[in-house]
Write a protein that binds this DNA or RNA. Sequence first.
DNA 1: ACAAATACCTGTAAGC
DNA 2: TGCTTACAGGTATTTG
Length: 292
Amino acid sequence: VPELPEVETVRVDLAATLTGRRIDSVAATGERTLRRHRRPAEFVERVAGRRLVEVDRRGKYLILRLDPVDAVVVHLGMSGQLRLAEPGSPTVSHTHVVWALEGGLELRFIDPRTFGEVFASLGPGRDRLPVEIDHLGPDALGADRATLAGVVGRRRTRLKPLLLDQRAIAGIGNIYADEILWSARLHPDRPAGGLSPRELTRLADACAEVLAAAVAARGSSLPDLQYRDVWGGLGGYQAFHRAYGREAQPCARCGRPIRRRADAGRSTYFCASCQPRRTSRPRSASGGGGAH
DNA sequence: ACAAATACCTGTAAGC
DNA sequence: TGCTTACAGGTATTTG
């Protein structure tokens, strides 16, 4: 569930609390969470005693930068949480990594389903990103029209799979893909390269507006309340969802029911009426039928 | 070049 | 009540 807005919320709060602090010690028990390392102890050696200088993000990945060049990378996966807690406060199950910070606060990584991961990067790669994640496309937050134009290019991929492709554009997951396409009035199956200039503008505007609003609302907490910020607080953007999770409810634009479809094991929600599969051409004097 | 299926994992909820 | 099944959907990988 954590996508760009949720990860950005975590980033901002971590930056405010962690910047400049030393990591006194690390307790790493999660073998699978630390699967990029041969042993959890290897991660501990690389990180303990280092100072955090910056908290960055690319897409859904958090980058905790350590003094001069190293970085710890965190991905929350489906069920991962980063929480700040007082040392000695009760530890919930599935707590895989605990960083004890100078000044007496703990950062804890909790992840029941272990789709998430934590690792110390081997070094900087393209674009000053940790090499392990330098394949990621441009960050979706703040992506402008020109960036989106480059993303869609002449590709024949359908829009939704493209938005979900982290190499093409980083940070969008299932929830925000549906929200962005609803807002842009674009059908998820439209071929990406076939957008008109106007439609491309709509896509870029929708992307910017939806993500900015979702960040402002501190992300989305779904009914399962899985997503929490670092202090345990809930997000508020779910109140503004217009497509995701709204099967059979009336579309906020046209009133017709939102449809749900399953593709490749995940749900897609959209309005078949105002997100048409084919663009309805405005009537022109020259008349005639099939534009091709 | 693209699409679809699968593996990874556990908490929750629905169905019987 | 207890069991089975489906679902949630991130990423990497494989197959078509």
